[in-house]
């Protein structure tokens, strides 16, 4: 019997992309996706359930669909993406309810994969140059998003202890760049002049968006219990990242940086949340070797990721935005999936 998979956050970039990649695998029998928003990509056979963000109906869905694998991609990793209340609701309450449903008595779930972020390590001058998965952060979290991710992480840890029969994988992803995804860094690097903090040139790592979905699919199809860092090989100084992308830099003052970026935010030029500012000051790198030792191969190194991003940016400047636009239409999707008029198994 193939895998029966539940994907949370199907309406987000990651949920949709992941579902699209999983659909291509014949050993995946069924995918059901959950979100308040509609999918952003055309999906062939994923069933979409529109549900409120804290997953209160999860218990019913898990039992009714008999899913054996849960892919929790719906953790928000940018502090300014959502108001604090919604962030807490999604990251903390959402994760809690999801794991409660997965761990309920008689639950068919045998595997839980959580897409988290290396934000949980923070960025500080006391940090080791490469965080191993077991290393604690060196400064208490200051932003709401970091606190909520840490709280979600503690739920995942408890769940793994309470449910030894479930394979729990938590992947901590580093700053993502790619052709389609929008992150704080991709926004910053799209500016004609890229901000830096005067006197600082931190070491950073990047992960390509294809490696993000690749790692999640890999964890779905193989049993790799534990916490793993995901980052492209190597590190790059921020100045070199900007050089590869072909951008000049503008310095922000090293003192009161938070105030200096406020006008930029108000003018809607760029929103640099506090966790990104501390990355631009101290940088962060993680040890990515444990996940590689499980057999996973990256397609891109850190420099390769930045280079690929630079290429797609050049194409975009030449021909304009080329990301495919798609609008989910319930009736159309239902027709293609369930109508007897559709001829299935066409070879």
């Amino acid at each position: 019997m193939g895998m029966r998979i539940l994907v949370t956050g199907l309406g987000t970039f990651w949920g949709s992309h992941l579902a699209q990649r999983l659909e291509a695998h014949p050993d995946v029998e069924m995918i059901v996706g959950l979100d308040t928003e509609e999918p952003v990509l055309p999906l062939e056979r994923t069933e979409f359930v529109k549900a409120d963000s804290n997953y209160s109906i999860l218990d019913r869905i898990v039992r009714a669909t008999q899913v054996d694998t849960i892919l929790h991609t719906h953790l928000v990793v940018g502090s300014t993406e959502l108001p604090g209340r919604a962030l807490h609701e999604i990251n903390v309450i959402g994760t809690m309810n999801l794991l409660a449903a997965a761990g309920a008595a008689g639950s068919p779930v045998r595997k839980v994969i959580v897409k988290s972020s290396t934000l949980t390590y923070g960025a500080n001058y006391k940090d080791p140059y490469f965080f191993r998965e077991s290393m604690p952060r060196t400064r208490a979290p200051r932003t709401r998003v970091e606190r909520s991710l840490l709280e979600a992480a503690s739920f995942v840890r408890d769940f793994a202890i309470d449910n030894p029969h479930v394979t729990v994988t938590k992947l901590r992803f580093t700053n993502v760049l790619g052709d389609d995804v929008t992150t704080a860094f991709s926004r910053a690097l799209r500016l004609p002049i890229v901000p830096e903090i005067l006197g600082f040139d931190p070491r950073l790592q990047f992960t390509h968006e294809d490696d993000v979905t690749g790692a999640l699919v890999y964890a779905t199809r193989n049993d790799v219990p534990g916490v793993f860092n995901i980052a492209g090989d190597g590190t790059l100084p921020w100045s070199e990242v900007c050089a590869i992308v072909g951008r000049r830099r503008i310095p922000l003052p090293p003192l009161l940086t938070q105030w200096a970026v406020e006008p930029l935010r108000l003018a809607r030029i760029i929103d640099l949340p506090p966790e990104v500012l501390s990355l631009l000051r101290y940088g962060r790198a993680v040890d990515n070797s444990p996940f590689k030792r499980t057999g996973f191969r990256y397609q891109y190194s850190t420099a390769g990721t930045v280079d690929a991003f630079a290429r797609s940016l050049r194409l975009e400047t030449a021909v304009g935005s080329n990301s495919p636009s798609y609008r989910y239409e319930r009736d159309v999707e239902t027709f293609f999936r369930h109508s007897p008029a559709i001829v299935r198994d066409q070879g």
Binding site: G234, P237, A303, G304, V306
Partner: peptide, 14 residues
């Protein structure tokens, strides 16, 4: 990385 010599602009190591 060996294949990155044409991408890298500097020689700052890890």
């Amino acid at each position: 990385e060996p294949g990155e010599t044409d991408i890298r602009r500097g020689d700052v190591d890890a």
